[in-house]
Design a binder for these strands. Structure first.
Lengths: 140, 140
DNA sequence: TATTGTTGTAATCAAATCAATTACAACTGC
DNA sequence: GCAGTTGTAATTGATTTGATTACAACAATA
């Protein structure tokens, strides 16, 4: 199992928006060219980022912009915008309740799985778009 | 995106093996009954656990046993046994190298994604089967 | 107002993964 | 040899992904 590429595509999109904000109109076509994918893929992900309040999109005229400062956008914000599953883990839903293990697996595991997911999200929350922009500008 | 249910099924399997080791022969049929799934699903996951050196299976006569003590088996061991992907995240593989962002996204993101995955795995590594067995026995 | 370039969205498609299932050969102890 | 079990291949339906075509709605501007 792997996450979809939507997280990395969305991050790529935001890096472009921030990097080219003063030089180009950042359209779905432009972005698709940088990412090397289809403009519709970009528009769909941009739509998710827009619904999440991360970007604003100019309909008609075109172009995408950050809806808030890059230091107020974390990888967790981006992740939650593009991955809709509330829970990372997936339980086999109907264990046998006649069995003492089947009856109690869920309650014992749930707390652990939550903690694991929290650790991951916490790490994501510590990475801001601002940091990523800074690091990529150093490389350019 | 969600992980498959193999992690929770595998954990369920190991909890049963440990819990019933003195009272029943723990076969794939028995396990399938507790999990409420098909015996072949159980046999495949048991096969993965066996390849990973976590359980031993008696061919012919039947029955599964832990290959080492329950305090030497962590959730991370189980996870790695049943989820084969080395990397949790998935990159769009062909960004446009003409674009400064496309050329550098990968190197900037990789380190971050590794850290996130490491945080998750580290949390998993802190949970032993022994703990889970203890907690579930308290509930029974 | 008509044109142009853009966004939003629906529909379709192929590939991959999952979970479930049937089937059957191979193995072991009795 | 028999019974019960494991290992594994093959198939199926559902779901997700990523790519693509198509087109209506929109906004600036010439």
């Amino acid at each position: 199992m792997q996450f979809s590429s939507r997280l990395t595509i969305a991050t790529h999109i935001l890096l472009c928006i921030e990097n080219f904000k003063d030089s180009c109109k950042v359209t779905s076509n432009f972005l698709a060219g940088s990412i090397n994918t289809n403009p519709v893929i970009v528009r769909n992900i941009l739509g998710q980022l827009s619904s999440a309040g991360i970007v604003e999109i100019k309909a008609g005229v075109g172009g995408a912009f950050l809806a808030r400062s890059s230091n107020e956008i974390t990888l967790l914000d981006i992740f939650k915008a593009v991955e809709k599953e509330e829970s990372l883990f997936h339980f086999h839903e109907n264990p046998n309740l006649q069995c003492p293990i089947g009856r109690n697996v869920h309650s014992v595991m749930d707390e652990k799985l939550e903690k694991i997911q929290y650790a991951m999200e916490n790490e994501m929350d510590n990475i801001t778009l601002e940091q990523l922009v800074k690091e990529i500008k150093e490389k350019i």
